[in-house]
Design a binder for these strands. Sequence first.
DNA 1: CTCCCATGTACAAAAACTTTGACATTGCCA
DNA 2: TGGCAATGTCAAAGTTTTTGTACATGGGAG
Lengths: 74, 74
Amino acid sequence: MPKPTKVTNSIRALRFANGEMTQAELADRVGVTRQTVIAIEQGRYSPSLEVAFKIARVFNVPLDDVFGYPDNDT
Amino acid sequence: MPKPTKVTNSIRALRFANGEMTQAELADRVGVTRQTVIAIEQGRYSPSLEVAFKIARVFNVPLDDVFGYPDNDT
DNA sequence: CTCCCATGTACAAAAACTTTGACATTGCCA
DNA sequence: TGGCAATGTCAAAGTTTTTGTACATGGGAG
């Protein structure tokens, strides 16, 4: 059981902002499986930096535009 | 044997730009071990997004300022 | 010279991330 | 109603990241 993540993301919003892109298509474009996209989108765990970069690239935005991290972790 | 990463980083430069911070101190501030800092700094593998965020936060810069990703992967 | 600090290496083991495959649900449309 | 696309869940297996311990090197200080 992976650890729930504190990292937030705007993937769902970005998908819809980019022509109603489906999870399957995003997964394909990023080079990961659909499961991975779903898990990341739901915040089940944070992706590796490499996957994060690939996602940001698909949407053509900086990393900080896709993912966020809370001010304090605790 | 972990996969070598395409992700680049400016951690070493940032450490020196921030009062000659040692790897041990960075590791401590980030909340990971010294081994992890060394491995990431040397590009042995790309960190998790969470660790990446924590590192950027120690230096008070955006993620894209610490890590880079080549234009095309192949 | 000897001690200490910062850096680096090597390994094995734990934890986290990713994949694969199978199946359930919802909404849409012919 | 039946079929299809999109989303979601579960579980097991595989890979990558992180940890822990131990040891080696080079530089500076006493």
